[in-house]
Design a protein around this nucleic acid. Structure first.
Lengths: 347, 347
DNA sequence: CTGTTAGCGCCTTCAA
DNA sequence: TTGAAGGCGCTAACAG
């Protein structure tokens, strides 16, 4: 059978309490005793019983990272960076950071939060855009409040701030500002018939990026609402949306997409229709995933520092980094002008 | 304070045991009683204490999914599918499936296994290629044996079989066969000066795909070992490797890469050097990630059914699906011939 | 169908 | 610096 702490104690000829102290390193223990205990641990191949430990201590070393779609590198990169930052923390009780993939489903998001609450998680990091459904937002808010009550640290990464004080820290992407600058760039190239491929209507990222786009158009005195198409954040949706935009506006000269994946889908559709990018139609994305710079043509986009944000979220979750003033830090994107956008050339 | 099961029992005027039975649904409980209990649960906003429950039951509902690099969609897609399959299982105790990102580090792999062992995980899924270092392999083997002893189900997905009987089921990708067919295709197009961009030398996937490549060359009576370059599984490494191959063999007419990401990096390097794909140099990848079909030119590659394999691994981990004969199932890849490969044209 | 009774393995005062 | 003892919250026999 699996060795228990008592077994170790017996072998080391000390009390269970002493073994516990050695393992947790929270209390002074004589060097000789510690040696003996560690040897016994080794000999018995002892592994701490997590549940028992968590039960007694009333906390666990689990850190949950919630993502909407782990198959999307946007989340993969953030999660990877967060997990690396958490795994790096040597000393103390080592944290087990785990990624929970909600698949964008509100129910699964709540389920995971409950499961993490059940595990008495030490921290929870919520990444990416939130759902705007009020009922769901309220449910999540209530869940987070309860988690916070129980001592779980809550960090938001790439998600807009939440009212209330259950969230320890928020790293919010400046989606609105990025969207604004991107469309300003397109306008600066002389484009006036600009299509926009938005994400799912109910997500905050979608709305904010679109708001930035609209702000730029407003400033230019344009109203292009009829050239906004919504879809999911995947390649297929970008492909279909581009076709739809061409249907609505055959004279289209530019397509701005809600993210890079969607933008590349749009490029594919344009190519299939015989248009070349950027000669006939300019295309721009958002996020700057690793392959976007390698696409042909290289994609103009707004670079979000996903790794940096993820790592910082990880450190915030561990309390290794000071909370930004007001608990909220805005993370800005950088406009990356590349080959996929060029001067407007009316057809 | 957080409500406990006893609180619920008191409020529902039943014994704690009854509450437990209602919650776990393992024993018959009168409908009326159940109603009362559920109402009390709701009113008190009660959430089961996971550690306590796991301690008493001597098992937890954690399922760990180990991946080498979650920022790589290869792993994201498998993990996502596995997690979806696990999350789908309604009824019984719901499982909390979590993704653990080792970052390719042997130590972190062992750390995660220990942490999962500590949590008394219900199952562990190991995805992707394994390290071939004998010491590490032995350590992992020992860990897995101990996990299996403690009742944890072990499933391998996209990883070669392991000796011993601690592994419940293995889904092994036919990397060798796929590599063989891919290079056969290249040879069939008349190529003879073929470079190969391999992955990290110590990983099984690297070795197997390379063995397939060599087998094809052998059959054609070629020895091209001097045109094999190793690197990591990322875009950058593909870029650098392509340049190195051109240096070693300026007359190169084809590049076969260990995966799609690397292949696209190689394409970028070739483009930057003024070569066009496939007119001057053909390029092929492996895996068939979603963006590979959209690349320009579309990438010839070997399609691995990542989603299917991941989902199956998830079901195997839950015991929802029968173990294949011998515990091992070979998952074959499908050659996808697209625009990035064409007839050899000597320069 | 339901209540009673022991622990599960560890942490943490309290004493020594 | 170390030991003894109680309890964390739940589950699982065993009765009834």
């Amino acid at each position: 059978m699996t060795a228990t702490l008592a077994d170790v104690a017996a072998r080391a000829q000390v009390s269970p309490a002493t073994v516990s102290r050695v393992l947790n390193g929270n209390y002074p223990v004589a060097a000789a005793t510690r040696e003996r205990v560690l040897r016994a641990v080794d000999e018995l191949d002892y592994v701490l019983n997590g549940p028992a430990s968590s039960l007694a201590a009333a906390t666990s070393d689990l850190v949950g990272i919630l993502v909407n779609d782990i198959a999307d590198p946007f989340f993969g990169i953030m999660a990877s960076a967060a997990q690396a930052a958490i795994g790096e923390e040597r000393g103390a009780r080592e944290k087990l950071s785990v990624i929970c993939n909600t698949g964008g489903s509100p129910e699964r998001e709540l389920t995971y939060l409950t499961l993490l609450q059940r595990q008495r998680a030490a921290a929870v990091i919520l990444t990416g855009g939130a759902l705007e459904d009020p009922a769901h937002a309220a449910a999540v808010g209530a869940k987070l409040a309860r988690l916070a009550d129980a001592g779980t640290r809550i960090v938001l990464c790439g998600r807009p701030p939440l009212p209330g004080d259950s969230v320890r820290a928020t790293l919010a992407f400046d989606n609105r500002g990025g969207g604004r600058r991107l469309t300003d760039h397109i306008l600066g190239l002389g484009h006036r018939r600009i299509g926009y491929v938005a994400g799912p209507p109910e997500r905050t990222t979608t709305r904010h990026r679109l708001e930035g786009h609209r702000a730029a158009l407003d400033a230019a005195g344009l109203d292009l609402d009829h050239l906004v198409v919504h879809g999911s954040y995947d390649r297929r949706s970008g492909y279909d949306a581009a076709l739809e935009l061409l249907r609505r506006e055959p004279e289209l000269t530019a397509v701005v997409a809600a993210n890079d994946t969607v933008a590349l889908g749009a490029c594919a559709a344009l190519r299939d229709r015989g248009f070349s990018v950027p000669e006939d139609v300019s295309v721009a994305g958002f996020v700057d995933l690793p392959f976007s710079a390698d696409a042909v043509p290289a994609l103009t986009t707004v670079r979000l520092p996903l790794s940096e944000a993820g790592a910082r979220a990880g450190r915030l979750a561990l309390g290794l980094e000071g909370v930004p003033p007001g608990g909220i830090a805005t993370v800005h994107g950088e406009l990356m002008v590349r080959a996929s956008t060029g001067p407007a050339r009316p057809r």
